[in-house]
């Protein structure tokens, strides 16, 4: 059913460590070059202007890739989701807080506890089965939990938190 998300996540984390080792610790994020697909606000350490972190796809890819293979109740069959792990992202941004207010393009809003952001936990998927997800396919970002790995991820609450067409996040204390 699933293909060792933990191992892949671990190797991604390793890669990240090396990547960041070269760069001097910077409070400021680089400016995005492509269209901004995610804006993060709230108690975060790193921003790129106006207290916000504006991120394009490439920036997200640079943080590190994590893959989850699982079925979902919204799709047919098993799919491979590729994205950035939520905890990696929060680490990257130096986020300090209790929960995240996540919103979609259609203004669907959910609250995700920071506690969910663990290794082997949810990712912000930008590709499904190797294809970048468009807005019509629940893109650009979809919060995917590893549903197949545990029944604790197959609850109404988790399903409700699995927000798609995500484009804004606010980290709250």
């Amino acid at each position: 059913m699933m293909t060792f998300p933990n191992v892949q996540s671990a190797s991604a984390a390793l890669f990240l460590t090396f990547a960041l080792a070269g760069a001097a610790p910077a409070e400021h994020l680089p400016e995005p070059h492509g269209p901004v697909i995610l804006t993060v606000e709230g108690t975060i350490a790193r921003t790129n202007g106006e207290g916000r972190a504006r991120l394009d796809l490439q920036m997200l890819r640079d943080i590190g890739e994590t893959t989850i293979t699982t079925d979902t109740i919204w799709t047919a069959g098993t799919s491979e989701f590729t994205g950035v792990a939520l905890d990696d992202l929060l680490d990257y941004l130096g986020a300090e807080g209790q929960e995240i207010d996540a919103r979609a393009i259609n203004d669907y809003a959910v609250t995700v506890p920071i506690a969910d952001a663990v290794e082997g936990g949810p990712i912000l998927a930008y590709a499904m089965d190797g294809k970048t997800m468009s807005r019509r396919d629940k893109g650009p970002l979809w919060l995917i939990y590893p549903y197949a790995s545990s029944s604790t991820y197959r609850t109404e609450v988790i399903y409700a938190r699995s927000i798609w067409q995500l484009d804004r996040m606010t980290v709250l204390d």
Partner: peptide, 16 residues
């Protein structure tokens, strides 16, 4: 349109 399209796709393909 995309949002609606996405919704209809969900209804069309979702296991649910």
């Amino acid at each position: 349109f995309d949002i609606f399209y996405s919704r209809i796709s969900t209804l069309e393909t979702g296991a649910l």
